Simulated assay, not measured.
Amino acid sequence: MTHDPNGAPPGGVLERLTAALGAEGSRRGPPPVERWNPDYCGEIPMRIAADGTWHYNGSPITRPALVRLFSTILRRDPDGRTVLVTPVERVGIEVEDAAFLAVEMAVEGEGDARAVAFRTNLDDVVPLDDAHPLRFERDPEGGFKPYIAVRHGLWARVTRALTYDLVDLCEEREDEGESWFGLAAGGRFHRIARVAELS
Rank of each mutant, 00 (worst) to 15 (best):
P133G: 10
E104C: 10
L183Q: 05
H132G: 03
T2N: 15
C41L: 15
P30D: 07
H152T: 06
A113L: 13
H55S: 10
A19V: 08
P60W: 03
L183V: 04
T72D: 12
A115R: 15
V95Y: 00
P78D: 04
R27S: 12
G80M: 06
R81I: 09
W180S: 08
A49M: 11
P64R: 04
A23G: 12
L134Q: 02
H190P: 06
E176F: 07
D79E: 04
D123S: 10
E34C: 03
R135I: 10
A156I: 04
D97F: 02
F136C: 07
R28Q: 15
A184Q: 12
F136Q: 06
R160G: 10
G186L: 02
L134W: 00
G52W: 00
A193R: 12
L166D: 02
G143F: 01
E43Q: 09
E197P: 09
D124G: 03
E137L: 14
T163F: 08
Y40G: 11
G7M: 08
F136L: 11
E141D: 14
L21M: 14
H190E: 11
G52S: 07
G52C: 01
H190K: 03
T62E: 14
D39I: 13
W180F: 10
G143P: 02
E171W: 01
A98N: 08
F189G: 00
N6V: 10
D129E: 11
G25I: 14
P133V: 12
R114Y: 02
A196G: 06
G186Y: 03
D129A: 11
D123H: 08
G12S: 05
P32V: 00
W36L: 06
Y164Q: 14
R27W: 10
V85T: 13
T2G: 15
V158E: 07
F189H: 00
A117N: 08
L198Q: 06
I73V: 14
P5G: 10
L162T: 02
R63V: 15
R135V: 12
A117L: 08
G25E: 15
G111V: 00
P64I: 00
N57M: 13
P32K: 01
T163Q: 06
F70A: 02
L84C: 02
R160N: 11
D123A: 12
H190T: 09
L66Q: 13
R81D: 11
P127S: 04
E110C: 07
V67Y: 05
T72N: 12
G58F: 06
T53L: 14
A106D: 13
A185G: 01
V150L: 10
A185E: 04
R188Y: 03
C170W: 10
W155P: 05
L183W: 07
P10V: 14
N37H: 15
A149Y: 09
V150M: 08
V91F: 00
S71W: 05
V91M: 03
H132P: 05
G142K: 02
G186S: 05
V103Y: 03
D112M: 11
D130Y: 13
H152N: 14
P140V: 03
P9D: 09
H152L: 07
A102H: 03
